[in-house]
């Protein structure tokens, strides 16, 4: 008997299963209780009415109501351009900064700072700075480009500006972090093989930056998708920036319709997974081979 149990333990250890794996338990249990369970609970709640009768009525109601359904389009209208813009601007800058550039550390440090400001502070600052009597409008009027202040806050522009301020630095850091890891010899090799600067970028650097770009886009999209405080504070939360997270919040905390709020949260999750999944799918089509360079 001891013989047998010993060999079982050895066999498990051979496959990497031993006592060390117990260390995963606290984290797995925590996420199970606070992430997976609430999610399933929400899923269950979403397929019943407020009185508890099962059915997909919440989803039907959401998609049947124009005002509710339009939040999806409004969210995408903000999140996709914001993510594309943030990552799009990051690519050439990361390309320029990827080598040994003077003051690189200062630049990257400056880039991290806005990420810590948080959406609430940025929104508050934007109301002042972009407002009708803010510095931005004052400057434009002083130069004489405009004679009446531009309406830059409490609309789509305000929310977009906030998404760029909080999102762009993080996107750039992600893309730059990845680009800095690309072996500079690869570009040199391409040069000695006769590829000019633009061809090197197109055929070597860009494909190698793609994994970083994908991750940056996914994270930028997810962050922009959930835009909540800025949509309320610098947006027009009952009009053009009534994004889906506002709809979910109102259902839960203004109408106390938890089943409906859960249904909206599930729809949000499904939409995010759909976008994230398709981005990764496209990437796996575009990029083959390993992410690191060949041979150390």
């Amino acid at each position: 008997m001891p013989e047998r149990s010993r060999s079982l333990r050895d066999r498990l250890a051979e496959r990497g299963i031993d006592r060390v794996l117990w260390l995963l338990l606290p984290a797995a249990a925590l996420l199970g209780m606070l992430f997976v369970y609430p999610f399933l609970y929400g899923l269950g709640l979403s397929v019943q009415s407020q009185e508890g009768t099962p059915g997909i009525g919440n989803y039907l109601r959401f998609f049947g109501d124009d005002f509710q359904r339009s939040t999806i389009a409004k969210t995408f209208a903000l999140a996709i351009p914001a993510a594309a813009l943030n990552v799009g601007i990051s690519i050439p800058i990361a390309y320029k900064l990827r080598g040994p550039v003077r003051h690189k550390r200062v630049i990257t440090t400056l880039l991290v700072l806005p990420a810590t400001l948080g959406t609430v502070l940025v929104a508050e600052g934007l109301i002042r700075y972009f407002g009708p009597i803010g510095w931005f409008n004052q400057l434009l009027m002083a130069i004489g480009i405009i004679d009446a202040p531009l309406q830059l806050t409490h609309n789509y522009i305000g929310v977009m500006a906030s998404l760029i301020i909080t999102g762009f630095p993080l996107s750039l850091l992600l893309v730059l972090g990845h680009a800095s890891g690309i072996d500079p010899d690869l570009e040199r090799a391409a040069a000695t093989l006769g590829a000019g600067p633009s061809e090197r970028f197109r055929r070597v650097i860009l494909p190698l930056m793609l994994p970083g770009i994908t991750i940056a886009f996914v994270l930028a999209f997810v962050a922009a998708f959930a835009v909540f405080p800025s949509a309320v504070m610098v947006g027009n939360p009952s009009g053009e920036t009534r994004v889906i997270s506002i709809a979910a919040y109102q259902a839960a905390f203004e109408r106390f319709d938890y089943p409906m709020a859960s249904a909206i949260a599930m729809i949000m999750a499904a939409l995010q997974f759909a976008v994230v999944g398709s981005v990764f799918l496209v990437r796996s089509r575009l990029y083959r081979g390993s992410t690191s360079g060949a041979k150390g």
Binding site: L24, A27, A28, L31, G32, L34, F35, V36, Y37, P38, F39, Y41, G42, L43, L45, V218, V222, A223, F225, A226, F228, S245, A248, Y249, A252, Y258, A261, S262, I264, A265, M268, A269, Q272, V276
Partner: peptide, 24 residues
């Protein structure tokens, strides 16, 4: 296990925040 640990980072907090608050 990795997927379990990654998912919360690939979803906006408000998505799981609402069911989580309800459960709490």
């Amino acid at each position: 296990v990795m997927l379990l640990f990654l998912l919360p980072m690939l979803l906006a907090p408000i998505t799981y925040g609402i069911p989580l608050a309800t459960a709490l």
